[in-house]
Design a protein around this nucleic acid. Sequence first.
DNA 1: CCAGGTTACATACCTTTGGTATGGAAGTGA
DNA 2: TCACTTCCATACCAAAGGTATGTAACCTGG
Lengths: 192, 192
Amino acid sequence: MRRTQAERSGATTAQLLDAARELFGRDGYAATSIDAVAAEAGMTKGAAYHHFPGKAGLFRAVFVVQQERMAAALEAAAAAEPDPRAALRAGCLTFLERCLDPDFRRIVLLDGPSVLGWETVRAIEYAHTLRVLRAGMTVLHEPDGDGDLTARCQLAFGALCEAGMMLARSDDPARALPVVAAEAERLLGLGR
Amino acid sequence: MRRTQAERSGATTAQLLDAARELFGRDGYAATSIDAVAAEAGMTKGAAYHHFPGKAGLFRAVFVVQQERMAAALEAAAAAEPDPRAALRAGCLTFLERCLDPDFRRIVLLDGPSVLGWETVRAIEYAHTLRVLRAGMTVLHEPDGDGDLTARCQLAFGALCEAGMMLARSDDPARALPVVAAEAERLLGLGR
DNA sequence: CCAGGTTACATACCTTTGGTATGGAAGTGA
DNA sequence: TCACTTCCATACCAAAGGTATGTAACCTGG
């Protein structure tokens, strides 16, 4: 059976990314070996090192995929709401719900900053999740105010991440979601 | 020269903790080897493994020291202000200023959650930094309100950590401090 | 169609490093 | 003084990140 190079490469990288997401998400970055990821994907280390610049590079690729999925989910949720405030509220809910995914929490919230560095992580997020959040908050921000929108977005984002971790830790996330979401919306200036 | 066992142990652990803080803070957890820490402290691995249960255990001890120092600084800052709101404000400033220490940022904000796990980190912080923050916010919290104080503290803490990272990343932290602090105080309900 | 070159991946190997086992030196208590 | 414990160094093991090399699959110009 004759496949083109692009097909081979694409299939291999996709399998590696999927296996890496599963193992990085379940066991964490440090406890996951390249050999294990390659074995899970049905190949050996050589393939991984051929397509990615190293363990951290593979992790970074997985991280970016998570960011893309989050940004898409946020934009979809916001697009369904015509009112800016309602759209921002819906985005909050969507973010918190996606924090219930253990893979997302481990890869994006826990290991990401440590492995990739804070600046790298925020740079990637500014192209995805933080970009959508900023767009939602820009509408509600009156430019004559004294506050700094960038700082406000970033602090709100930190609070949201903490809310996501807190929510996932609770005994009954479904029941805890409203109260956590209420506090998050309050911090975003959506209160009352 | 005859030293008691407690003196030997205490001096050794103190040297190890100091060397570990320096290397963990400068190079990060993953890039720091136990051999390097022991060499920096003027001894070998054996000493480290005798006094600490492993690399993560040593890191945890360093983390706790950082937390103790932060909590002490916060309490000192708050005690100097009779007004509860002013005390909380002063605590914010103190927290942000201590975030300018690269060792603190790397150990507590970046590597801590990844190495120790989120729940362990927050449990330690609830005995130190978060305890002081909660005490400060309890005074301003009217119990008849609908909000959840625990969630509010935690989200505010997440925002503060983000503010600290953002502040340290800025070109001129001294100049950026007021604007970041203003946004942080706004999130804490101290605005206006 | 086919030969040279490139891409994709496997295998073998090196090095670092976390952790353990063992041995000896320093301190302690009777 | 003599057993016993604590403290720390040294020697060793196994796992894992990374590299070098070999080989098979694809591509391209003639």
